[in-house]
Design a protein around this nucleic acid. Structure first.
Lengths: 110, 110
DNA sequence: TTTATATGCAACTTATTGGTTGCAAATATA
DNA sequence: TATATTTGCAACCAATAAGTTGCATATAAA
């Protein structure tokens, strides 16, 4: 019964952490590649802490990394978020569903 | 700089776990309130394990619980997912952005 | 060559997570 | 009343997460 979807699991996990969402956002609005150190400078956290988050974002393909010289440039890629959007899409039809059915149930009308 | 958004954090956290997504989905398609035990029966996990997940979903307001007699009925509410959708919306404009800029950067064109 | 910079790796700590079991309490049923 | 059912609470455990520090290495600059 347990059917794992490792890729989407990684995306959900990556965006679950507010710091990672913040890193991702910073890279998206930067719009260009940024060395890891430059990313790290923007957060009140050790470079290694940021690096760990970056790795998780990279595993989810929300960040791509290209090395040049001694620097590793991070660039956001929003594309994997499409999977989340697809997942959400199914539930849109229930967004504004009233909870009447529950009320009915509790009133014994169901 | 750290500005916490506890509610949306709880929603992201709730949907980060595949088991919780599965529980939520089961309740959504059930379409009606379901006692905790009945939810738990559907998963190969102890009742308490399921209960813990339900609590986290409840904290995110993705499940509402109403008690009648000794039973507690769970009902899914997709509404909080709107927040996730809103969060995603900002990034839609970047979904299909090519990574040319990165390439340019690496080629020294930038 | 010497020095400074950017980075990765490993070890470690602490907190959280995901799961279990056992027991008690409340409600329903015989 | 006695018994069965539904549930919550607490304790516990193993694994993971989130963060730190120290050190090694590769590249760039003086």
């Amino acid at each position: 019964m347990k059917k794992p979807h490792p890729h989407i699991d990684r995306i959900f996990k990556a965006i679950a952490d507010p710091t990672r969402r913040s890193i991702f956002h910073a890279l998206v609005i930067a719009g260009s590649a940024m060395p890891i150190n430059e990313v790290a400078e923007r957060f009140e956290m050790s470079r290694q802490g940021v690096t760990k988050h970056i790795k998780i974002l990279e595993a989810a393909k929300l960040i791509q990394i290209h090395q040049r010289g001694r620097e590793r440039f991070c660039m956001a890629s929003a594309q994997p978020l499409k999977s989340i959007s697809q997942w959400l899409q199914f539930y849109e039809q229930f967004w504004d569903q009233s909870l009447d059915r529950l009320g009915q149930h509790l009133d014994g009308v169901d």
